[in-house]
Amino acid sequence: MRLSAQGVGHRYRERVVLSGVELTVAGGELLAVAGPNGAGKSTLLRRLSGTLRGPGVVLIDGADLSRLPSRALAQRLTMLEQEVPADLAFRVEELVLLGRHPHRARLGPPSPRDRAAVHRAMEAMGILDLAPRPFSQLSGGERRKVLLAAVLAQEPQVLLLDEPTAHLDVHHQLEIMSLLSRLTGDGRAVLCALHDLNLAAAFAHRLLLLKDGRVVALGPPGEVLTRELLRDVFGVEAVVTRSPATGRPFAHFFIPTRAAAPNPWPETIHPGHLA
């Protein structure tokens, strides 16, 4: 499986929010998309999902996404939006079964294959015990896992996620990310927009940095999380170390001020930055 973007862009009315994105993702990879608010992360994901049209082409195994019928597309690739209504009255298993839609006939009960896919998806997300509960009564972390199970029941080869850890506590953030990285195990490609750069660095194989709708950097976290790039893209100073817990790159951020408190890392700040 191979998803590639060639010259992908987008504009809302006159404003260009994304341009010239070149990207190839292969099965088995977890790619994190990062960048400041308004850099075009969500727009990039929606362009890659095929539901938003614009300049450039997105190919899945050489087939143009915009030419695939909606059903065929949803069998291969899906996306989980950041905001999904929380007050849905569906029971958990009903909601996960909705993910089978692109595989099911219009009329008739779900097939044994549908049931099996729903069971596998719920098992992978560790939510089998939630099956009979109403979605609206779950916690934020549980709801996220149910929605993930629903899109997983589509059995997609490419999974796009917009901020899958937003509004979650640290336990659920880590849990969701490790579930996602496990999903790449069966040759699936997972792309997710993430605000937390250290979370991205801890789990992603590659990191893509967006600024003003353009790709500024794309590579392993160690090459992307650098002082210069972080300053350029986010306008913050950073000290990049390695996390003693994961061994992955870890950035400590700060904004230098004139009345700076005693600096624990004086050697990393150039005098010019304090001016």
């Binding site: 929606r46 999902s49 539901t51 909606s70 059903r71 597309l73 949803a74 069998q75 899906t78 996306m79 989980l80 939006e81 905001e83 999904v84 209504p85 849905l88 569906f90 909705l98 993910g99 839609h101 692109p102 099911r104 219009r106 009329l107 629903a150 899109v151 589509q154 796009l160």
Partner: peptide
């Protein structure tokens, strides 16, 4: 009745529904 499931999925919002094979 043939479009009942589409109606269920639309409750997730137009954006999310469109990722699940709905127009």
């Amino acid at each position: 009745l043939a479009f009942a499931r589409d109606l269920d999925i639309l409750a997730l919002g137009d954006e999310q529904a469109s990722h699940m094979g709905i127009v």
